[in-house]
């Protein structure tokens, strides 16, 4: 029990620090992509900028729109943030550093993260703002569609490893990372694309679509509630990257350095990849994205699953 408590607290600590770090990192990376300097005033190269920002957000007035459905509206940020934090409980940071190695670990992560969509839809609906509603609707459609190819590519890993436990999957990759096998490399690609859609990032940032919907589902949020959406967004990014690392990139395994370092290097590498994509590509349209999910990614991942299954039992 005590272990669980300490684990939970350290996970929350890790999340807040990593979200702050990622916000700073994203601002720096985007700035350098765009020939700018980015934040430079607070601390060395603006490294304390995120702390200043969170202080500002903490002190801001919490404005509740008069037309909002108050209960739904206030609960929404929690529904977005809490599942993301909970998903970390089964993520293996290193051989020993894991809060609880559930025997259905990957299933748990997949199911718990899909609660997020409820929060986003609640935010869109509860705000009583047309733009937010459009954002929420788009988000629900998008996340549910991309859950399918995402899970199908995870199933392939489970088939290969023969276990649902996250730690077990990492240990199964001792002989070689799964990403090096052709069918799993394909699954990795599908996973990367679907997870980008899952966390609403460019080119699939349709629920937020700043140039169309203002800010989408979180248009009406201010202060700490807005900060929670913000933290959830970045933490979600870490979650999907951590799962990708665990499932396809050998988790914490690696030579010389301790496992934790390898894990973080891989995770932040994937995060940086996502940032690079974000600041380069335009956004796709809603119907194009849905077409892509249902007519391209889903059939391809089913096909991949069938062929690999046939190969295994052959």
């Amino acid at each position: 029990m005590m272990n669980l408590l300490i684990g939970g607290i350290s996970v929350v600590g890790f999340i807040s620090l990593s979200a702050m770090f990622l916000i700073w990192l994203e601002r720096k990376i985007s700035a350098h992509i765009q020939n700018r300097m980015g934040p430079m005033i607070c601390g060395w190269h603006g490294s304390l900028q995120s702390i200043a920002d969170s202080l500002k957000l903490l002190l801001k007035e919490n404005i509740v729109p008069s037309g909002a459905d108050k209960l739904v509206w206030s609960l929404a940020p929690f529904f977005v943030t809490v599942p993301v934090v909970m998903a970390f409980l089964t993520v293996p940071f290193s051989k020993t550093l894991i809060v609880r190695d559930l025997n259905v670990g990957i299933l748990y992560v997949a199911s718990i993260t899909s609660i997020c969509v409820l929060g986003i839809f609640m935010a869109g609906w509860g705000s009583n703002n047309k733009y937010s509603l459009l954002g929420g609707m788009r988000s629900a459609a998008q996340i549910i569609s991309y859950e399918v190819p995402l899970l199908l590519s995870i199933v392939l890993v489970v088939m290969e490893a023969g276990t649902l436990s996250m730690q077990g999957i990492v240990q199964a990759q001792e002989q070689g990372w799964y990403v090096l096998k052709p069918n799993l490399a394909f699954a990795f690609l599908i996973y990367l694309i679907s997870s980008t859609a899952e966390v609403n990032r460019v080119p699939f940032d349709i629920p937020e679509a700043e140039s169309e919907l203002g800010a989408g589902y979180h248009t009406e949020y201010t202060g700490m509630k807005f900060a929670m959406f913000f933290v959830a967004e970045y933490t979600n990014l870490v979650v999907v990257s951590a799962i990708a690392t665990t499932l396809f990139l050998g988790g914490w395994q690696g030579p010389l350095l301790p496992g934790l370092f390898w894990f973080l290097i891989k995770v932040y590498g994937l995060v940086c990849l996502s940032m690079w994509v974000r600041w380069t590509l335009p956004r796709v349209r809603m119907d194009q994205m849905m077409t892509f999910a249902w007519k391209v990614l889903t059939p391809l991942s089913i096909l991949n699953l069938l062929v690999s299954g046939w190969w295994m039992v052959r």
Partner: peptide, 14 residues
């Protein structure tokens, strides 16, 4: 125009 298409500010800055 690129900004309206959702290319986050990068073409705009260029």
């Amino acid at each position: 125009f690129a900004q309206d298409l959702g290319a986050y500010a990068t073409p705009m800055f260029y």
